[in-house]
């Protein structure tokens, strides 16, 4: 197994290689405005560090957000394109789950990232592997009661100490943590050996796989492996778009 993981849902641009046992190489840079420029060089860097070529990769892992940046799409389209060219599965993971996994915390805690516009993306966890609910976007003050007394992980927690007085590391998601989480899921979570491809029409289905998956893939349905998310972005917000109001007269009144 050789997993390539990428995440561009937060200001971090991060890529990592995982061989099924441990992280082989990792690159992380924080620059919210340059996801598009930095991701491919980061992938190239981790492959060079490991002395491997991209075609050695057996699966792609991608953080699907939630994320407010236009850069969120950089990781997703990169992962989907790699999956299509290489013919390997693409596994979507919630970016918050990567942060939770990296924290190693036991018991109840919260992960919060910066959603901008004075809001956070957040979700509750019970231990570093178990998310309790779907991620949502809220103003910190509005959720203060719900998160009171809980440790909190992520840049969103550090930004709003009034709501999250017990902020913990890590601040940013790392592709290494995402890859490790995916490797664990693939090793243990699929006892029947089924591995599906990610969504977005990629055809990373191995020829020797179950007929049901193949049939679904041929119909164009999204096939999602157990424990993973479809390779589609978690925006959690509608686009800022307004249906124009009625025609505005230009004649001076």
């Amino acid at each position: 197994m050789l997993l390539l993981a990428v995440d561009t849902a937060t200001p971090a641009v991060t890529a990592a290689l995982h061989d099924g046992t441990s992280v082989v190489a990792e690159s992380s840079r924080t620059d919210a405005r340059r996801h598009g420029e930095l991701l491919l060089p980061a992938v190239d860097h981790v492959l060079a560090e490991a002395g491997l070529k991209l075609d050695a990769v057996t699966g792609i892992v991608v953080g699907v957000g939630p994320g407010p940046y236009t850069g969120l799409r950089v990781g997703l389209v990169t992962a989907a394109t790699f999956g299509s060219v290489l013919g390997v599965p693409v596994y979507g993971l919630c970016t918050l789950d990567g942060l939770a996994y990296a924290s190693g915390l036991d018991g109840p805690f919260v992960v919060a990232t910066d959603a901008r516009r004075k809001e956070v993306y957040w979700a509750r966890y019970d231990g570093f592997r178990t998310r309790l609910d779907e991620p949502v976007v809220d103003r910190p003050a509005d959720i203060a009661e719900q998160v009171a007394g809980l440790p909190a992980v992520g840049a969103g927690a550090l930004l709003y100490p009034d709501t999250f007085p017990d902020a913990r590391a890590p601040e940013n998601v790392s592709a290494g943590a995402l890859a490790a989480l995916a490797a664990e899921k693939l090793a243990g979570g699929n006892s029947d050996g089924r591995i599906g491809a990610g969504g977005m029409g990629t055809d990373g289905i191995d020829a020797d796989e179950g007929g049901a998956d193949r049939a679904r893939a041929e119909r164009g349905d999204v096939v999602v492996a157990d424990g993973f998310l479809p390779v589609t972005p978690l925006y959690l917000r509608r686009p800022d778009a307004q249906v124009p109001k009625n025609y505005k007269v230009v004649t001076p009144q």
């Binding site: 598009g36 075609d55 236009t70 799409r73 389209v77 990169t78 394109t81 790699f82």
Partner: peptide, 15 residues
């Protein structure tokens, strides 16, 4: 533009 540029890079790199 960013979506197309990112896809093109990944495509060219993978090939």
């Amino acid at each position: 533009l960013l979506v197309g540029v990112s896809a093109a890079k990944a495509y060219a790199y993978a090939l």
